[in-house]
Amino acid sequence: MRFAKFGSLVLAGAFLLGLGAAAQAEDLRIGVEGAYPPFSEKTASGELIGFDIDIANALCAEMKVSCTMVEQDWDGMIPALQAKKFDAIVASMSITPDRMKVVDFSKKYYNTPAKFVAKEGMFTSDTPEALAGKRIGVQRATIHDDFLTTKYTNSEIVRYATQDEVYLDLTAGRLDAILADSLAMDEGFLSRDAGKGYAFFGVDHNDPEFFGEGAGIAVRKGEDDLRESFNKAIAAIRADGTYDKIMKKYFEIDIYGG
């Protein structure tokens, strides 16, 4: 009796494992973040929306594969890709030399500069000297984190798991300034109620050494076929107007960059 039960359990387990393997073979699993408006965020009903999500779906449609979106916290994104939790990252990930040591990237699918935000009129300049001794908030493991850690050594860098937490602590008055992608902050913070009274200051930051050439789709090293099919799909949706349609849904300006 006992053995019979155990045996059927093992069988059921093996069956489930088999199902999982079968599903994986025909599916492409895409890692997305879900806390980076307007590129990816979650609606009240838990549905993922945003520019990254729409682009990922358009690319999958173009590549004629069925895709599953897998949500993943930002700071575990690359490790999760390598652990095969998913096969590609479509999460506004900038193509940087440091990241290219561990993953491969498709060509960029958009490129926007980084900028500082603070209370309106609080700062006029964003040089390391102007921000010395100030508390600057940033999302952990981002190009902005890298840039601040290297260049703003006299400021206190406060690191957060998500960009949403950075906004929360800026409005709570715990941070003097924050650095992130200008477009993400414009759409995700400054143009919303929470961002009233806050504004950009300083210059556009796009030093390729830190900020790379734009956001690309990351795949595991050596998966050249997948990378190539993403490149082709990006070119295709750029050519047939799908890209522009998605872009206009979220932004008033051209974010693809020169």
Binding site: R140, A141, D145
Partner: peptide, 22 residues
């Protein structure tokens, strides 16, 4: 570590984030 204090786990996360490891 979830509210930005660099405690022991927070330090581990900073290292993870810096080098894209886990």
């Amino acid at each position: 570590s979830t509210i930005s204090v660099i405690d022991i786990l927070g330090a581990g996360r900073v290292i993870n984030g810096k080098f894209y490891v886990f």
